[in-house]
Design a protein around this nucleic acid. Sequence first.
DNA 1: ATAATGTATTAAGAGTACTAATACGCTTTA
DNA 2: TAAAGCGTATTAGTACTCTTAATACATTAT
Lengths: 142, 142
Amino acid sequence: MALWIQISAGSNEPIYMQIVSQISEAIAKGEISAGQKLPAMRKLAAELVINPNTVARAYSELEQAGLITTKTGSGTFVNDPKLRTIDAANINILAERMDSIVARGINLGINASDLAAMFRGRVDSFINKSQKREKENERDST
Amino acid sequence: MALWIQISAGSNEPIYMQIVSQISEAIAKGEISAGQKLPAMRKLAAELVINPNTVARAYSELEQAGLITTKTGSGTFVNDPKLRTIDAANINILAERMDSIVARGINLGINASDLAAMFRGRVDSFINKSQKREKENERDST
DNA sequence: ATAATGTATTAAGAGTACTAATACGCTTTA
DNA sequence: TAAAGCGTATTAGTACTCTTAATACATTAT
């Protein structure tokens, strides 16, 4: 378990957001499992050569999103996916973001079928990794 | 043809971006057709009670995205969709945005099938409107 | 106790978003 | 040709965000 997070300083995306995105996606893909401990804020900050407050900001966002839980003195841990609840407001935000992508894709000249297929492909790549992980975990615990 | 653009001042999304999004989606849905003239910057600014420069900023973004063309002295017009070219760089950006949405959806507890179906639904709603428009245009020109 | 971890506060610099005021150049139209 | 309409460009200022920095504090683990 080393350092899977890569930040690019030249990006227009804020550093704390890059961290949020990468950890979010890692959790969705099952690359980090429930209960697992994330790197300590100071350590991660040192490895990425950024300020600890920036990491704290990222972890704070992730906690607010319900993905992790921080315990003072102990560390930061990934939540159990089963605890997550589907909120209507979040669904709406997701729908709006989808609309934005759909408009962008169509305006780029991509037809409807290709666009849907593309999205399906991205979903599958998440699920495949997630299922791989589950198998590995089963084998490990055996 | 009145004013379909609605901006909310309290939104965290910048005003010029709200304009960009709404016009982009309107173009994708075919609610604005190729060759059609957009509202003059000053007029739109007056109607929305915002600064003309903000509208100029929005139109500038749309032009850079290849969706519209501005002609000094004449006005701003929607481009012909057939002229749009699919760029690899844009596809990658689209893929990244999809990944972000997929992670978000899965982490919210939505399963893969539902997520893909949801996206498909958004795509269809665009296409349906687009086709409706095409029929109306055929009828009008008859 | 000591080390490790997260929390909180305050301050400052850099960059971005938006508004504002204004002037200029091109095109259409009377 | 002159006026009106439209987009372009520049400069300035205010407000907000991102990031770093320097600390100090509270809780937990060893």
